[in-house]
Design a protein around this nucleic acid. Structure first.
Length: 440
RNA sequence: GCCCACAUAGUGUAGCCCGGUCUAGCAUUCGGGACUGUCACUCCUGCGACGCGGGUUCAAAUCCCGCUGUGGGCGCCA
């Protein structure tokens, strides 16, 4: 059977728009077949679009024979329907569409590569191989609706508080910031790298726009094969001038509080689909604060896990911590030894004005007060064994009245993973990049 | 990078330990049929699989080796 042309048909509404006020009105809906049931003289189509679904009902004798016979549909066929909105109490939402015309715009193979019925759970790797299809599933729709709400809520929250959204280069010339491995690329005839963070640029811009944030990708060339690491990550980077760590702690916990409040207010159906409506709850603020020393005490004395002072906390210890402290909490004042050069040391220089925001066993955010004095920054670079010459252009910005500033970086995907109760970070990214996956 | 595990129809699984009874079971998808209020419709019926290569054995989905793929843990992680 030949497919139909779009021709002059245009969608009049999305499924979510069709409310009781539309009764007896004609609408044109378009989308995909989520479910099709043939009862003989009666057929039901669940048409889904980007927002939800509506039931299309075809009763023999009520709709034309032509359209009734045409309605032989498979999962995820792309269709458009012109029809009248009718009230019917037994229909989902009390509303159904009685079609006068049906267009089949595209078909699918008889057997789809992943389960779209909700009957079985296809493996994540298989789902990712067929991601454009998988993203239409109820579950994926819910995850990305929540992600969209998170991003919207973050932007609203920050813009209302005089933050300026910035964009900084993702292609950089030197790989000297330290820490993680970078992806080298060719920039015409020069070697260049994909950026590991917006750190240096956002600091510079805090000396211009005072309060700045950026939501953008960063790249980590680490062959980390875990359920919480990606090679291309999306981070919220925030920096505030005329502020220190305490101001950042406050604004971050307010933001977390607000975002979850917005999700519960606007995305409750999505939370319910993910069975997180009782788990993703608004945390009380201020969030609990522990110092690194207090956490270390707990780990070594209560959990009997050996972590030396000045070491990072092992995965094993974090997992145990997550069992003990289930919600969001801060760990502050990390040893200067394991923090990057731009972090401000505390009064006792063994410690630093730094913090992590944890959710259970997962690290969500790192941040702190930054060094804003050029001479001290040069000293700090040298102490970390880095060459100030290669930071010349960055240091340059610190010569023109750089204000005291503080900030943080937050892993968006990790947060989505936690908010949606997912098992694997890959599920919270539309097209995740891992050491083993470069397509789709 | 290191260690461990797993691989059965389109999808998800049972069988493997203890070789023969497996002509490989089940659910769903898919094909055919019945059905005018379903919503995971129901019922009848049919098609469809042991990752690849080698070995042991009278006999291999089952035991052994290699390869490939996947999963998990650790490490790395501004």
């Amino acid at each position: 059977m030949a497919l139909d042309e779009l021709a002059d048909w245009r969608k009049s509404h999305y499924t979510k728009d069709i409310t009781q006020e539309f009764i007896d009105k004609e609408v044109i809906l378009g989308g995909w077949v989520r479910n099709f049931r043939d009862l003989g003289g009666l057929k039901f189509i669940n048409l889904q679009d980007k927002y939800g679904e509506r039931q299309i009902t075809l009763k023999k004798g009520v709709v034309s024979d032509e359209i009734f016979d045409k309605a032989k549909l498979g999962y995820q066929y792309c269709i458009m329907v012109k029809g009248k909105v009718k009230r019917f109490d037994k229909a989902p939402g009390g509303i159904e569409i009685i079609p006068s015309k049906l267009k089949i715009l595209n078909k699918t193979p008889e057997k789809l590569p992943i389960d779209m019925t909700g009957e079985t759970n296809s493996e994540l790797d298989l789902r990712l191989n067929n991601r454009a299809l998988d993203l239409r599933s109820l579950r994926s729709q819910a995850i990305f609706e929540i992600r969209a709400e998170v991003l919207k809520s973050i932007r609203n929250f920050l813009l209302e508080r005089d933050f300026t959204e910035i964009t900084t280069p993702k292609i950089i010339g030197s790989a000297t910031e330290g820490g993680t491995e970078l992806f080298p690329i060719m920039y015409f005839d020069k070697e260049a790298f994909l950026t590991q963070s917006a750190q240096l640029y956002k600091e510079q811009l805090s000396g211009v726009y005072e309060r700045v944030f950026e939501i953008s990708p960063c790249f980590r060339a680490e062959k980390s094969r875990t359920k919480r690491h990606l090679c291309e990550i999306f981070t919220l980077d925030l920096e505030m001038a005329f502020a220190d760590m305490n101001d950042v702690l406050k604004i971050l916990e307010e933001m977390v509080h607000n975002v979850i409040k917005d999700i519960r207010k606007n995305k409750m159906p999505a939370l319910k689909i993910l069975k997180m409506d009782n788990k993703t709850i608004v945390p009380e603020i201020p969030l609990p604060r522990y110092t690194y020393d207090e956490i270390l005490d707990l780990i070594t004395k209560e959990f009997k896990i050996n972590v030396e002072w000045g070491e990072d906390i092992s995965t094993e210890a974090y997992r145990k911590l997550g069992e003990e402290i289930t919600g969001y909490y801060y760990i502050t004042h990390w040893p200067m030894l394991i923090k990057p050069f731009y972090i401000q040391p505390s009064k006792d220089p063994k410690y630093s004005e730094s913090f992590d925001l944890q959710m259970g066993w997962l690290e969500l955010t790192s941040g702190g007060t930054r060094v804003h004095n050029k001479e001290k920054l040069i000293e700090a670079l040298e102490e970390k064994g880095l060459n100030p010459i290669s930071f010349e252009s960055h240091l340059n910005a610190f010569g023109f009245g750089m204000p005291p500033h503080a900030g943080f970086g937050l892993g968006i995907a990790r947060w989505i993973t936690f908010l949606c109760g997912l098992d694997d970070i890959r599920e919270s990214v539309m097209y995740p990049r891992t050491p083993d996956r470069l397509t789709p």
